[in-house]
Amino acid sequence: MTLFNFYLFNPKGECICYKEWRRDNPCDIPQEGEFQLVFGMIHSLRSFAQKIVTRDGQQQIKYFKTSSYKMNYMETATGLKFVLNSDPDAVGIPELLREIYSIFVATVIKNPLVDIEAPVASSLFHSKVDELIRAHQSFA
């Protein structure tokens, strides 16, 4: 049971934070390309979900699961997108994503000197998120 990696996209679609704790397969495309790929996939998934829906109301993507990982997703009304790849049996991830959101708000959003759309430079944010992930029950 483990947590693999984490992406945070700003409302413009740029990846402002990428964290990795375990990656067995190195990626063969450059990192910038990988971020665009992940974002493009999320964007398409969202519009697909909205088009195919049989009931009224806003659709929220929660996760997709494959045999070796589960991609958890959370989106805020302000356009921030949180993506966390975890073990398929991991539990408690939605709460974990909400906690990462509150850490982001406390360290980045509330700091008036920081540009909220730029890549996260706050070392406090990075260390707090790391600490949170390592202490989580789903982290090996």
Binding site: G57, Q58, A77, T78, F104, V105, I109, K110
Partner: peptide, 19 residues
């Protein structure tokens, strides 16, 4: 205001999307 929006949403996850 731009920053307050995220703060309010993170502290109140039960506020859903407004239609």
């Amino acid at each position: 205001g731009v920053r307050l929006a995220d703060d309010l949403l993170s502290k109140n996850p039960h506020i859903g999307r407004c239609t």
